[in-house]
């Protein structure tokens, strides 16, 4: 590797040598214009000139660029990775923005003005002042059905989504039910079919009529798309096979919460396991309020 291309340690050089939030102003303007078009055409994937970021593709370069473009000095940032504030991806992105923008961060959903997420929507309801930024690996919902960009673009132009319904039908033919459990396709505002990023389908209903603005950034694929607040987001289904979310038989082992998304934690090599909240802030808030589960 070229020695000059190696990154300075961003955690050491806090604030110095970088423009606010890392990106240069020309790049921010380009991303901002893409965001505005994405909001005006809900669910349409706006191409943008994604930059190389000081992190590998797959670590949220798209989400990071969207966050960097919208962030202001008074914003409070929360970053979650599979619902958790304390895993590698979340911690490193939070530190990246602390170092390059000097902004405040939080783990509390209610206190954040911008929430960057990799594949979960917080359990606590979002509010009007908040922006949810998704990290997206593959923005094109039709990509695994039709690999050619020229063709998928035409399918979106004509709103021709039969292919997606065939895919869901094949699920039913093979498994007896729609077996897609994450990246479950949605129709936005009655027009575009959109990939909600690999969130569990459990979170799909939270996208519908959400008071917060939802922005999606795919760095490697160079696409930005959006769901404005209070927008109809419908998970695709069939009359005789309506959309259903996962349900869990037992509550969270730590806080006793029900009707939320759980992670499985393996405890030993003898089959011991427990199920806990995927949303760490939700779990901690409940435990602080005195709720306990069977393992607490």
């Amino acid at each position: 590797m070229n020695a000059q291309a190696t990154n300075p340690d961003i955690t050491v050089s806090a604030g110095s040598g970088y423009n606010f939030a890392y990106l240069d102003e020309g790049t921010k303007r380009m991303i901002r214009r893409a965001i505005l078009k994405a909001i005006a055409i809900p669910g349409y994937q706006v191409p943008f000139a994604a930059r190389e970021m000081p992190m590998p593709y797959g670590w949220g370069t798209g989400g990071v660029q969207v966050t960097a473009a919208i962030l202001g000095a008074s914003d409070v940032l929360k970053v979650i990775d599979q619902g958790a504030d304390d895993t590698t991806n979340a911690v490193s992105i939070r530190r990246f923005f602390t170092a390059t923008a000097g902004i405040a961060t939080t783990t509390r959903t209610a206190e954040a003005s911008v929430i960057q997420t990799r594949h979960r929507i917080p359990e606590a309801p979002l509010s009007e002042g908040q922006v949810l930024v998704y990290q997206v690996p593959i923005p094109e919902p039709l990509r695994f059905l039709e690999p050619r960009e020229t063709e998928t673009r035409q399918l979106h132009a004509l709103a021709e989504y039969g292919l997606m319904h065939v895919k869901l039908y094949e699920d039913i033919a093979r498994h007896g039910h729609i077996a897609t459990t994450y990246a479950y396709p949605v129709e936005v505002a009655g027009r575009y079919v959109m990939d909600p990023s690999p969130t569990p389908k459990f979170d799909n209903p939270k996208m519908d009529d959400c008071p917060a603005l939802q922005l999606f950034g795919a760095g490697r694929e160079k696409r930005i798309y959006a769901i404005p607040p209070y927008t109809r987001v419908r998970s695709l289904d069939f009359e005789d096979h309506p959309f259903r979310v996962q349900s869990f038989e037992r509550p969270c082992a730590l806080c006793g919460a029900r009707a939320i998304y759980l992670d499985e934690v393996v405890l030993d090599d003898a089959g011991g396991r427990m199920f806990v909240c995927s949303d760490t802030d939700h779990c901690e808030t409940r435990r602080a309020d005195g709720h306990t589960g069977e393992a607490a």
């Binding site: 423009n19 921010k28 909001i39 962030l71 202001g72």
Partner: peptide, 19 residues
């Protein structure tokens, strides 16, 4: 202050267009 004033105007536009 081009960085922060530009950001503030953009956020106002983003909010206006979202609502």
């Amino acid at each position: 202050d081009p960085v922060h004033e530009g950001q503030a105007v953009f956020r106002a536009v983003m909010e206006a267009l979202s609502r």
